[in-house]
Amino acid sequence: MQALARYMQCEQVIPKFGLLGKHTTTGAAIAIPFVATSQSLGKQAKVHWYEIYEIVRVTCTTDYAGTTPGDEVMEQLLNACS
């Protein structure tokens, strides 16, 4: 998932640059764009994860024993595809 990859990139850059930056014209402190981007991409990745989970749960041909998208079942499924 591209959203997850970009989210992870933002999370790696935030500690390097910090949470605040300097506005180019006013010189006032502003939040760096990576923070808002990270939050947006994190939400997108979570939505995609739940969509994949729901499709797998509904179309499963055997009895489904998992209870939440965070179960190892989803991770095993995604690892099997790569």
Rank of each mutant, 00 (worst) to 15 (best):
A5L: 03
I55G: 01
V35H: 03
I30M: 13
P69D: 01
C81D: 04
M74Q: 04
A28P: 00
Q2D: 09
I14T: 05
G42H: 07
R57T: 01
A3C: 11
A31V: 10
A45H: 04
V58Y: 02
E75Y: 08
E75G: 02
Q2R: 10
T25A: 14
F17A: 06
R6V: 04
I14D: 05
Q12E: 12
T68Y: 03
I55P: 00
G42C: 08
G27I: 10
L19W: 01
A36V: 05
G66K: 00
Q12Y: 03
V47T: 15
L41F: 15
T24G: 10
S40Q: 12
S40I: 07
A28T: 10
R57I: 01
Y64N: 09
G27R: 07
Q39G: 03
T62A: 14
G66P: 07
D71C: 15
Q9L: 15
N79L: 08
R57K: 13
M8E: 15
L19Y: 07
I30N: 08
I32N: 11
K43E: 14
Y64E: 02
S82G: 12
I32L: 13
A5D: 05
G66W: 11
L19S: 07
K46Q: 12
Y50D: 14
Y64K: 01
Q76R: 15
S38Q: 14
E54D: 15
E72S: 09
Q2G: 11
G42F: 12
E11N: 07
T24K: 06
I14H: 05
Q44E: 13
T26V: 05
A36E: 08
P33N: 11
G27D: 10
T26N: 09
D71T: 15
I32K: 11
L41H: 06
D63R: 12
I55R: 15
N79I: 02
I32Q: 11
P33V: 08
A36M: 08
Q39Y: 04
A31H: 14
A5W: 00
G42V: 06
A45F: 02
Q9N: 13
D63L: 07
I14L: 06
T37S: 15
H23I: 05
K16F: 02
K43Q: 10
E11H: 02
